[in-house]
Write a protein that binds this DNA or RNA. Structure first.
Lengths: 186, 186
DNA sequence: ACCATAATAGATCATTTGATCAATAAAGAA
DNA sequence: TTCTTTATTGATCAAATGATCTATTATGGT
């Protein structure tokens, strides 16, 4: 309950939010928090773990590599599931706060995304591309960034944004793959 | 000098950085800061203004609307100049910190980008697109996000990144416009 | 019912931090 | 020089904040 409350509170005000305000929101005393967490840093680490863990599906590498499905279908499915997992007020903001703070978990997460999701995706797109035009990692990062930026606008900057990002994700994936002469089926 | 130092300091540690550490970096006493700024909030506002101002070129709307040049040339030139202006450690991080804090200036900036840069850009792409396929605002935001995300990786997440983003910007613009049947000249 | 353990509260400490104020040093005009 | 104004410092206040410690209350097993 403390971790859940801390996640909600810190995602709102940042990791420098104070434990007294947090305890007030939780309806408990401030000292209770320190009964379960030795330091505030420990609490933040717990929030990191709670937010980062179980957000990554272990099925994604297999999905990306599943050549029985078209690359368009795989890419679109992956980004639908990926954005479904990370497009939340709490995840996006905790991720950005921890990224700005230079958290280790943040960098490890991005290494995972790069090495086990985006690089395989790039290789699959390379294989599926019929012509000489093949994507490099930076191209995949560009696709990725364009999609993730929807969540940044929505939850970080909190500017008006369509609530359903599905159509734009489909359009972005379609544009990206067609640049490598991969047709968008259906 | 205080504003410059505060910009460097706050962009590194966030807007909650304390005035004592700042004064130490500046080589002055802490009380001196409060001689020039009534409150810390005033100082932060001054940092905002210093960072945001003079980063937007007044020539961009004219550049985007200059139909004597190809849309590809205009889009590419705009994003080269735009990223040249905002891709800096200080700007990217102050912008993100202030965005997370919900700063008013942040929202006004995004309204400016949307209304006076991206919407005109969208209209120009619509005019240049020969086929029935026309971009909407979300498509332009996708192009924009993919490019800005390079700076986010570089300065926010601080992950390995090519130092020259020029080639990827060219590639991204090329892919985007060709999706609307606009050929990439040269 | 009894007892050991866990949960929770309240008071408090020590540090940090924004802000103030009086005093001193520097600068520049007359 | 002299005087006024500005720049700068050092000491200090008051509030906020992470953390601690003791006492009290609840819980569950026997």
């Amino acid at each position: 309950m403390i971790i859940a409350g801390a996640t909600a509170y810190f995602s709102e005000v940042g990791l420098e939010g104070n434990t007294r305000e947090l305890s007030k929101r939780l309806g408990v005393t401030q000292s209770l928090i320190f009964n379960y967490f030795n330091t505030k840093t420990d609490l933040i680490e717990a929030v990191y773990r709670a937010v980062y863990l179980d957000r990554i599906s272990p099925d994604w590498p297999a999905l990306i590599g599943d050549r029985s499905r078209s690359i368009h279908d795989r890419t679109l499915t992956f980004y639908r599931e990926y954005t479904h997992a990370i497009f939340s007020y709490e995840w996006m903001r905790i991720f950005m706060f921890s990224g700005l703070a230079g958290a280790e978990l943040n960098r490890r997460y991005l290494e995972f995304v790069s090495g086990l999701l985006l690089r395989p995706l790039m290789e699959e797109v390379c294989l599926a591309a019929p012509g000489p035009e093949k994507p490099e990692m930076e191209d995949i990062w560009n696709l990725h960034g364009g999609i993730v930026y929807i969540g940044i606008r929505r939850y970080i900057y909190q500017v008006p944004c369509p609530e359903d990002s599905g159509p734009e994700i489909r359009a972005a994936v379609g544009r990206f793959l067609s640049a490598f002469d991969i047709p968008c089926q259906d």
